[in-house]
Design a protein around this nucleic acid. Structure first.
Lengths: 284, 284
DNA sequence: ATCAAACTATCGAATTATTCGATGGTTCAC
DNA sequence: GTGAACCATCGAATAATTCGATAGTTTGAT
C-alpha cells in the first residue's frame, strides 16, 4: 500500500469518476484504474461499483473511506512535523515555559535566524515537567524553565536570575502601609518558600494571583502592592506609577537552560546557548 | 511511502537494530537500510542515529513514531473492517481503562452482540492518555475512562459515579482504630485531592497501593483499612469480612465516556452509548 | 596492536511494480 | 445507429525495490 493509493481512492470517492480523479491527480486514467485494482486485490473486495456514469462506493468502500481519511491525515501531519523545510540544513527544537516566552524566546528567535539562517527553528511552550520529559526523550534540543528536574544525561545551566522586588502603588506611607493591600503573586515553589521565611506571620493576603503578569495588571488598576520582577517594575517606578518598598527583602528567581549532554550538533547547540545567554542578559 | 516502510521503521524503533529488524521482517539488512533511506530522503532528515551497537531514534524519528503507529494501526483496522466476515456490517471499536474492564465492558459486550448482531466488536484496554489519542486519531469509536482530557472534536459524557467508602477488617474498635493499619489506595488525582482535604493531618500511611484491586486483596489477606468502591465492599461486609467505618467521609470517582462528535454511524454509536449507560447503572 | 564480532552503508544485477498510451468494451442519450 | 462518457486491459517503458556480496565502521577481547 502506498500513500498514492489512499489519495487516489479518496479523490475518486470525492469526485465519483476515475477520469476526473486522474485529471486532478495528474496521472492517466489507466493509472487510477491500476491503483484501485491494487487496493481491491489487497482487500479481496471491490471498493467501487462501476457504472456507465462513473463509480460509487461499495459498502466495503464506505468503510474503508473513514480509515483512508485517517491515514491520509496522519501522513500529512507527520510530513508537516518531520520534514525539513526546503533550504534548511537542520532543525533546532526549543521548548520554554510560557512565562519565559516573551521575555526571552521572542528575542532569541530572530537572532538565531540571523546567525544560523540554514537552521529551521521549532519552538514550543509547555510546563517544565513536560519539557523535561521531551528533553529526555530527545524530542527537544533545549529547554528553558524555572524549575528543572535533575535527569541523567541532561545538563542544567543557570541562565539568569530574575530579581523580584516589592513595589506598591502608594505614594505615601510606603513602608508601613504596603501590607494593607498586599497581593500575593505566586512565582513558584522557591518563591513561596522564601516568602514564608521572610514573612512568617503574614496572614493570608486578601488577593493572591497565580500568574505574574495578571498580578501586576491588577495592582496597577486597583492599587496594591506585591512582588514583581525588577526589570518590569523599574520603568513603572520611573513613571511614578509604582514605588519601591525599600526595606522589604528582594527575592531571586533563577531560570535554567536544560540540554542533552550528547547533542547531535555540538556547534549549533553552543551557538543557541550563547545566544540564549546573550538574550538573558538584556532580559534580567 | 509504502506501509512496508512504516512497519520497517517501527520494527527498527522497537528492536534498535537494522539486522534484527531485517530478520523479524524476513528481508535482508540491505532492504531495511534502503527502506529507511527512502523515508529519510522523503523527510530530508535522518530518523535514526547509527552507532556501533545499533541505532537510536533521532528527534525527528521520535516525532515520526507517533504518526507511524497511528498509520500502521489504521491500516490494520481498515483491513479488518473491509474484509469483515459475511453477516457483519461494521466494526465498533471501544477502548477502556483496565479498571473499568470487568465491571463494565464484560457486561456490555454480550448486550451489544445481542442487540446488534451484525456489528463486530473490537475492544481494547489502555491508559486514558493513550485512549484519548486513539480517539482523536479515529482509531477508536468510544473510550471509557476515569480521567479524560478535553479535546476538540470529542464529546465527554459522565457515565457513572462510583462511591468509594472506607472499610476495615477490624471487627471491633472500628471507629478509633482504623487509622492504625490504614492502606492508602491511589484512586487518581481527584481522590488524592479529596483525601488530602478530608485528612489533612494524616501522616504518610505505611502502605500505599497504586492499583485498587491490589489494595483490597492486601487488606483482605493481611488486615487493614482503606477506601474501596462501595459496590465491591458491600458484599464483603455482608460476609462479615469487612466492616464499614461509618463516620468517615465517602468519596466519589466519576467515570466518563468519550466519543467523536462526528461518528461514522450515529445510530450505532447511540445504541452503544445507551447500552453502556444501562450497564453503568447496574455497575454503580 | 591486532583481531574478531557486531554493526550499517553501498553497489550492481535481478526482479517487481508502476506508469503511460493505445485500444477495447460497455452503457446511455439522442 | 451513433457518439459521448465511462472503465478495463494490454504491452512496453520506466522506476522502485530487493537481494547478495562487499566495504567501512566501532568496540572489546586478547
Amino acid at each position: 500500500m502506498k500513500i498514492d493509493h489512499i489519495m487516489t481512492f479518496l479523490e475518486i470517492a470525492a469526485c465519483g469518476n476515475f477520469n476526473r480523479a486522474a485529471d486532478n491527480l495528474n496521472v492517466t486514467q489507466s493509472t487510477v484504474s491500476a491503483r484501485v485494482k491494487t487496493l481491491e486485490d489487497q482487500f479481496g473486495r471491490s471498493l467501487f461499483t462501476r457504472s456507465h456514469s462513473g463509480v460509487e462506493l461499495t459498502s466495503a468502500g464506505h468503510h474503508f473511506k473513514r480509515y483512508a481519511i485517517g491515514i491520509q491525515r496522519l501522513w500529512q501531519q507527520a510530513h508537516q512535523e518531520v520534514t525539513l523545510p526546503k533550504g534548511y540544513k537542520t532543525v533546532l527544537a526549543l521548548g520554554a515555559q510560557v512565562s519565559l516566552w516573551d521575555r526571552l524566546i521572542l528575542k532569541w528567535m530572530p537572532r538565531m535566524r540571523e546567525k544560523a539562517s540554514d537552521v529551521a527553528l521549532r519552538v514550543e511552550a509547555d510546563y517544565s515537567s513536560s519539557l523535561m520529559r521531551q528533553l529526555s526523550d530527545g524530542l527537544l534540543d533545549i529547554g528553558v524553565m524555572y524549575t528543572p528536574r535533575q535527569i541523567p544525561g541532561l545538563v542544567i545551566d543557570n541562565l539568569f536570575e530574575e530579581t523580584l522586588m516589592l513595589a506598591t502603588t502608594r505614594e505615601r506611607d510606603v513602608t508601613a502601609g504596603w501590607l494593607e493591600d498586599y497581593v500575593f503573586v505566586d512565582w513558584g515553589d522557591e518563591f513561596r518558600a522564601r516568602h514564608g521565611e521572610a514573612f512568617p506571620d503574614m496572614e493570608t493576603p486578601a488577593v493572591s494571583v497565580g500568574l505574574g503578569a495578571l498580578g501586576l495588571q491588577y495592582i496597577l488598576e486597583n492599587g496594591g502592592s506585591g512582588y514583581f520582577p525588577t526589570r518590569v517594575v523599574e520603568p513603572l517606578i520611573g513613571q511614578g506609577r509604582l514605588f519601591p518598598v525599600h526595606d522589604a527583602p528582594s527575592a531571586s528567581r533563577p531560570a535554567y537552560v536544560v540540554y542533552t549532554a550528547t547533542p547531535k550538533d555540538e556547534e549549533l547547540l553552543q551557538l543557541a546557548l550563547s545566544e540564549l545567554r546573550a538574550v538573558a542578559i538584556t532580559a534580567s
